[in-house]
């Protein structure tokens, strides 16, 4: 085997054994009221509301994200939406602080991987 083939093989094996972010699975724990949307593409909550969600990154490889400490969710604009951590693993509380658009940054191991479109509405 040539050196080049050897490097490609090592790279392929290494990739298969690591996690690769492929989106955020996010589901509300509470019953969603009117005007409230929580899914992997967008979040919409009324001003003044607090909603607890279960959020866990999906991996495109066989390895899954197993360390809850690795994940951080934070709002790009915390004056519009606050994201609080919850004592339970993979759980967060989203709080509609003021009306407007923002996005929820998905931070994995200190790297911003994604920003989920979010909006706080008047009602």
């Amino acid at each position: 085997m040539s050196l080049r083939a050897c490097l490609v093989t090592v790279l392929l094996v290494g990739t298969a054994c690591s996690t690769d972010y492929a989106g955020l699975e996010i589901v509300a724990d509470d019953e969603l009221g009117p005007g409230t949307v929580v899914d992997l593409r967008r979040v919409q909550i009324p001003e003044g509301r607090a909603i607890r969600v279960h959020a866990r990154p999906r991996s495109s490889t066989a390895r899954t994200f197993d360390d809850p400490e690795e994940l951080l969710l934070r709002a790009e604009n915390p004056d519009i939406l606050r994201v609080f951590s919850d004592p339970e693993d993979w759980r967060w509380v989203l709080v509609g602080r003021a009306t407007g658009p923002t996005c929820i940054e998905v931070v994995l191991g200190g790297v911003v991987e994604d920003c989920i479109v979010a909006r706080v509405t008047q009602r």
């Binding site: 509301r49 607090a50 609080f84 919850d86 004592p87 509380v93 709080v95």
Partner: peptide, 19 residues
């Protein structure tokens, strides 16, 4: 007029809330 939760928080962690 409207609804707002009151939050009980410790640092960036939320302990509980009530609307």
């Amino acid at each position: 007029e409207g609804t707002s939760a009151i939050l009980a928080a410790r640092g960036d962690a939320l302990v509980d809330y009530r609307h």
